[in-house]
């Protein structure tokens, strides 16, 4: 029988929604137990949120001052030690999990399954390669713990209403001092979080400037959407990196995705192909984005976007 340990992602006392999606992926294994590991300097608030996730058996907490920031080199030896007795070790395929989990796998001397998108059975999984242009089935050996990062857009978030027990875990692990947190420049925004928003409006290079992005924000605020961008728009400096949607940015699955002035490079499409409904507005009728859009509208975005916002006002 499988026993799964999920490494919780959290920031400022809040559990990241990616953890609830990992729980759903773990549920697909039909395991004996799903536990969550919270590493923090002050884990109580995050542990309480994790304990409320449906399907979780036990939340294990490790409280150490060194865990105040998520440094992979500091967390990895603790996760590796906590993995004893588990058949599966899951983390989210976010920058947090991508940074941490391979380090854990190497410490355990096992392979890692990156971007797990489907569970076939307890040792067999599907994952995307070549920017999502091919899907490969991978099989992990039976005699070792399965370490995986979960492609969060492929799994719905587990619900709440659970009441798992919370147990402190004592680990006798020496932690390195060679890696130190200096600071985090986080985009402060009152808008819905890009990775969990049910609606997302994204802008591309065609906006032409940072100022012009105001029409994207304005439309997004009208419908309560998160705001994203193509790589080209981030590279051009119109918006910060944390707004990038796509293969090397955020992989998202909102119910509604509106792509404005985005041509639709394969790397961008990889980040949105699990969206419910995709709308594209672009002046180029031949743009690849129209190949996957449910609704396409050809025209000048500077005319159409304000028009769309006005039409949605009623």
């Amino acid at each position: 029988m499988s026993k799964v340990l999920i490494v919780a992602e959290h920031l400022d006392g809040r559990l990241n929604a990616s953890t609830a999606r990992c729980v759903t992926a773990a549920t697909a294994l039909a395991p004996q137990a799903i536990d969550i590991l919270v590493l923090s300097d002050a884990p109580d608030a995050v542990a309480a949120q994790a304990a409320a996730l449906a399907g979780v058996a036990t939340v294990r907490t490790v409280a150490r001052p060194e865990n105040a920031h998520a440094l992979a080199a500091v967390l990895a030896p603790q996760v590796a030690a906590a993995a004893a007795g588990y058949s599966h070790l899951f983390g989210p395929s976010t920058t947090f999990g991508k940074d941490l989990m391979p380090r854990v796998a190497a410490l355990l001397g096992v392979a890692q399954v990156s971007d797990l998108m489907e569970v076939v059975d307890a040792r067999t999984f599907k994952r995307p390669i070549y920017a999502g242009n091919a899907i490969v089935t991978v099989t992990a050996p039976a005699d070792a713990v399965v370490v995986a990062t979960v492609r969060t857009a492929s799994f719905a978030a587990a619900g709440t209403g659970g009441s798992a027990g919370v147990e402190p875990l004592a680990l006798d692990v020496a932690l390195p001092g060679h890696t130190r947190f200096v600071g985090l420049a986080a985009g402060k925004s009152d808008r819905p979080d890009l990775q969990t928003a049910s609606r997302v409006v994204s802008g591309g290079r065609a906006l032409g400037s940072a100022d012009a992005f105001s029409i994207i924000y304005s439309l997004a605020d009208r419908i309560g959407a998160g705001v994203g961008a193509s790589r080209a728009a981030v590279d051009a400096g119109y918006v910060p990196n944390d707004m990038q949607v796509g293969q090397t940015g955020k992989i998202i699955a909102p119910e509604l995705y509106i792509a404005i002035g985005i041509s639709g490079a394969i790397q961008h499409l990889t980040g949105i192909k699990d969206a419910g409904t995709i709308v594209a507005i672009n002046k180029d009728a031949e743009a690849p984005i129209f190949e996957i859009a449910d609704y396409g509208l050809v025209g000048d975005l500077f005319k159409l976007v304000p028009e769309l916002e006005a039409a949605l006002a009623g």
Binding site: H178, A186, D242
Partner: peptide, 12 residues
Amino acid sequence: EVDAGLETIEVD
């Protein structure tokens, strides 16, 4: 480049 923004760390 992390999901939350830009994180700076120091490593030996």
